[in-house]
C-alpha cells in the first residue's frame, strides 16, 4: 500500500465516476486485511443508496467493528449503536460527531461544510485513533488539504476521457496542479512574485506577458484556478512554487466508462508515465510505476 506511512489519506477523483469510492473502499478493505483500524470521513456526502446527481446505485459505506468515523448527527445510525466519542463543527445535517463502530454497520457519511472544519475533523480523527484516517475527497473541494500532511491519491479513469491518452493527459494536468513544489531558495529566479488568494486566468495571462525570469509563489496548490493549456503554458514559462505543498502519492485508474471500456493495462501504464506517480487499478489488480 503506497500510502501506508501516511497518517491520513485523501482520495480525490478527476471526474465523477472515476472510481473514487471504489478506491476508498478498496483501501479500507486492504487495511482491514492487514488488521489496521481505520478512521473514515468524507468531504462530500457518501454512502447514500443512490447517487444524488444521476440516481445510479452507489455502494454504501460499511464500517467494520472498531472503525472510527466522523459523520453528522443526522446520519448516525440507530442500530447497531455507535459509541459517540466527541463532537465537532456544525453541518447542514447536524453537529459533526466522532464515533466508533462497536459492531459492523452500514451507513452514510458526510463531512462539515467548510475547509477549516474539514481540516479540524481530519485532525481530530487522527488524535482519536491509532490507525490512518481515510477521507473520501472531492477534486473541487480540496481546500481542506492545504496545510495538512495528508497523502493524496488521485482517482482517474475512463469517465474523464474517451481514450487512454486523454485520460492520462487529464490525470497529468491534475497531478501537476496538485504537485506544485514548495519554495527552494537555491532555485528561485531573479524576481519573486507573490500571488495572494487564487491564481486565476487573468493572473496567468499577466505573468505570461512578463519576461518569464520569475518565481511565482502561491499559498498552496488549492489556490490554482487555471486549467488546461493555460496552466501548462504558465508552468512551462515561470517557476511556479507554493508555500505549502501537497503530498500526491499515487494515482488509480478505472478503465470502465459509462459507454466504453479502455484497455486496463495500457491505461494504468499511461497514467503512471504521464503523472510520474505509481498507478494502480485496484479492480483489475494492476500496478505500474513511472520507470517501469
Amino acid at each position: 500500500m503506497a500510502t501506508a506511512a501516511a497518517r491520513s489519506v485523501v482520495v480525490v477523483g478527476t471526474a465523477k465516476n472515476a472510481g473514487k469510492t471504489t478506491v476508498f473502499n478498496a483501501l479500507r478493505a486492504v487495511a482491514a486485511r492487514r488488521g489496521a483500524v481505520m478512521a473514515v470521513t468524507s468531504i462530500g456526502r457518501d454512502g447514500e443508496p443512490f447517487d444524488a446527481l444521476d440516481a445510479e446505485p452507489k455502494p454504501r459505506v460499511r464500517l467494520a467493528a472498531g472503525t472510527l468515523v466522523a459523520l453528522p448527527a443526522g446520519l448516525v445510525p440507530r442500530s447497531p449503536a455507535l459509541a459517540l466519542l466527541d463532537r465537532g463543527e456544525e453541518s447542514a445535517l447536524g453537529t459533526m460527531m466522532f464515533a466508533r463502530a462497536m459492531l459492523a454497520t452500514t451507513c452514510e457519511i458526510a463531512g462539515p461544510p467548510t475547509a477549516r472544519a474539514m481540516r479540524a475533523t481530519i485532525d481530530r480523527l487522527r488524535a482519536l485513533g491509532e490507525g490512518p484516517v481515510l477521507v473520501d475527497g472531492a477534486i473541487d473541494r480540496i481546500a481542506p488539504l492545504a496545510g495538512g500532511d495528508d497523502a493524496i491519491v488521485v482517482a482517474t479513469g475512463a469517465a474523464s476521457g474517451a481514450t487512454v491518452e486523454r485520460v492520462a493527459a487529464v490525470a497529468a494536468e491534475t497531478v501537476a496542479r496538485l504537485r506544485i513544489p514548495g519554495r527552494d531558495p537555491a532555485c528561485e529566479r531573479a524576481r519573486i512574485v507573490r500571488v495572494p488568494g487564487a491564481l486565476d486566468a487573468r493572473d496567468a495571462e499577466e505573468l505570461l506577458g512578463d519576461t518569464g525570469d520569475v518565481t511565482v509563489v502561491i499559498e498552496d496548490p488549492t489556490r490554482v484556478a487555471v486549467r488546461g493549456a493555460l496552466f501548462a503554458k504558465l508552468q512551462a514559462f515561470v517557476d511556479l512554487r507554493c508555500e505549502r505543498p501537497l503530498q500526491v502519492v499515487a494515482c488509480t485508474t478505472s478503465p470502465v466508462g459509462r459507454d466504453a471500456t479502455l484497455p486496463a493495462r495500457a491505461l494504468v501504464e499511461a497514467v503512471a508515465r504521464a503523472t510520474g506517480l505509481p498507478a494502480f487499478d485496484v479492480v483489475a489488480d494492476l500496478t505500474a510505476v513511472p520507470d517501469g
Binding site: 471504489t22 473502499n25 479500507r28 478493505a29 486492504v30 478503465p255 471500456t261 485496484v282 483489475a284 489488480d285
Partner: peptide, 15 residues
C-alpha cells in the same frame, strides 16, 4: 481471476 476487494467489484468482459 479478479480479486474482489471492497463491497463491489468490476469484471471486465475482456477478462
Amino acid at each position: 481471476g479478479v480479486d474482489p476487494i471492497g463491497d463491489e467489484f468490476v469484471v471486465l468482459r475482456d477478462v
